[in-house]
Structures are given as C-alpha cells and as structure tokens.
C-alpha cells in the first residue's frame, strides 16, 4: 500500500491533518485567530517558495503583492461600493496583472540585482499606500467591510480558521500540480542553472514569468483573506519588514519544501505569541532561536528533519 502513496499525496495528507486536527480541539477564538494567521502567512510563503525554492529567483518585495490583495479588498468596497468578495477577486487579478507587467523587464535581472528590483517594487507599493491618504487612509490604515455569504457575515475567528485552512489546502494542491507539470520540471532546471536550462531549449523568461505571476497570486489571495479576516488594514501589510518575514518563513521552514512553508509560517506566527513570557527579551529569544534553527537545520526545518530521519532509518 505504502508504495502507492507519492510524496505529493503525503504532503497533501499532512496539510489536511495540520488544518483539521488543531481545528477540532482548539479551546477559544484566540487560538483560532492565531491558526488562521498561520494559514494565511503559509499561503503567501508557498507562493514565495515556488519562486525562491523551486525557480531560484529571490524576491524581497513579496509583501507588496500581499498588500495589493489586502488593499484591493479594502478600497473597492469603501470607495466604489463593490461587494467585498468581488473586490478580493479583483485585488488578486490586479496583483497578477502587475506581476505580469513588471515581471518581463525585471526578471531579466539575476541574483542580488533581482532582489533589489523586487525590493524597490515592494517599497513603491507601500509608499503609495502611505501617501494616498484620501484613498488608503494613509499610515493609519482603513477599515475593511465584512464579507457576507448567503446573508451570513464572515467574522468569527473560527469561520476564518476554516476558510483560510481551506484556502491553504487549495494552495497546496495547486502548487503540487504546478510542480508535477512540465512547468515544474522546467522551474527546477532553471533553479540549478539558467544557462543549462536555456541550452536544453527551456524558455527561461517565460517560465520565470509564470512562477512570478503565480507567486503574486498566492500573496494577493493571502492578503485579501487577511484584510477580510482582520477588518482593518494598515500599510505595514506591504512593508519591507513583512517581505523579509516571508523570506525568513520560507528559509526557516525549508526552501523548496511546501510543508516547510507551512511550518516556517507556523514558527514565526506562533513563537512571538509563546515568547511573550520573556517580556522585553522576547525579540532577543526569537532571534536566537532563528539562528539556532539555521545552524542546526541549515536546509530548513522540514528538509532538515526529513534528512535526519531518513539517515537514521536507512542503515
């Protein structure tokens, strides 16, 4: 039996368990809120991981697309009276369109040049959000209208736990499908060597663009979910620090690992909540823990642990 389960199916089963098991036992809305935040971050990080872990392209502006999803969902209902869910979908389309438009010129850059270009995009987006006070509410942010489905207002953390969990599972399915397609194989070839990939006849530019747009869609969906869930957005959602946080989640969890994205997000969302017992030393302890993760599980938590387990189990 065991032979028939492919890694992809295992990853999917693990994701479903991660969503369902805690969902059955969590004691209060607070825990559901934290859980929902883990899933939302994980969704954005999976997108980033496709870009960084599989295609090997660095992005330091991922939060910019996250912010477009969030602010699309906030602005369209507030300014034009759109229904929130339609606004969320539009936000995602906008993010994808922007990624498509800017992807072509900037994805020609490599390594640190690409990192700086994406950084610039993220910063531009936050600058606009901060400056256009009349539309975005400026640095104080703006309220987001609640989404209503069949007359039922989506507001309870429990509801959002299951919605974001569902989105995460869908995101994982989509990512696995992408990776097991010819596109996925092309991406991995590109990750190892762009020149070699090109020599093999892979349209490098096109695949890079595909994965860049896909990553921006993940981020925008996550951003839209966050906006609808929290009911208030501020320009921090797109800040440089948020982008760095996403990259850290991807790296800690494991680059090139879908489960790693979820674990990385879980670690960085949950740890600050646990570490409040250290009071003012909280940030220090968090920093030390991240360093320790990086020293002892250099490939990231999930690939690192998997490698150790496999090593122990195979003599």
């Amino acid at each position: 039996m065991a032979l028939k389960l492919s890694p992809a199916v295992l990853i999917l089963i693990a994701t479903v368990l991660i969503v369902v098991l805690p969902g059955l036992v969590l004691p209060s809305p607070y825990y559901y809120r934290v859980g929902a935040l883990v899933f939302i971050s994980a969704l954005a990080v999976i997108g980033l991981n496709l870009l960084m872990g599989y295609a090997g392209q660095v992005s330091l502006g991922h939060a910019g697309f996250f912010a477009i999803g969030a602010y699309g969902t906030a602005i369209l209902p507030a300014q034009l009276g759109w229904p929130p869910l339609l606004a969320a979908a539009t936000g995602v389309v906008l993010a994808a369109a922007l990624a498509f438009a800017i992807g072509r010129p900037i994805l020609r850059l490599r390594g640190q040049h690409l990192a700086v270009a994406t950084l610039g995009i993220g910063m531009l987006i936050t600058m606009v959000l901060n400056a256009e006070v009349a539309i975005t509410g400026g640095p104080d942010g703006m309220a987001v209208a609640r989404a209503t489905v069949f007359g039922f207002k989506l507001r309870a953390p429990e509801t959002w736990y299951w919605i974001s969990g569902g989105l995460l599972i869908l995101g994982v399915v989509a990512a696995l499908n992408l990776l097991n397609s010819p596109t996925g194989r092309a991406l991995r070839a590109l990750h190892d060597s762009e020149v070699a990939a090109e020599v093999l006849g892979i349209d490098v530019t096109r695949y890079k663009l595909v994965v860049f747009v896909a990553a921006s869609v993940y981020a925008a969906v996550a951003g839209a979910a966050l906006a609808l869930f929290s009911g208030h957005v501020t320009p921090d959602v797109g800040s440089f620090l948020r982008s760095v946080e996403f990259v850290t989640m991807a790296v800690i969890g494991g680059l090139g690992s879908i489960l790693g994205s979820i674990v990385g997000a879980a670690v960085l969302v949950i740890l600050p909540q646990v570490l409040t017992v250290f009071q003012e030393y909280e940030t220090l302890v968090l920093g030390v823990m991240i360093i320790l993760f990086m020293i002892f599980l250099r490939g990231g938590i999930v690939p690192g642990l998997a490698a150790r387990l496999t090593a122990r189990l195979t003599p």
Binding site: A14, L21, P22, Y31, V34, V263, A266, I270, L305
Partner: peptide, 10 residues
C-alpha cells in the same frame, strides 16, 4: 510536530 506546534498554543 506541526500539529504539536499548533496545539502547543493550547
């Protein structure tokens, strides 16, 4: 591990 992390909340 992941579930424990999540449950560790509890």
């Amino acid at each position: 591990t992941a579930s424990m992390l999540a449950l560790g909340l509890a």
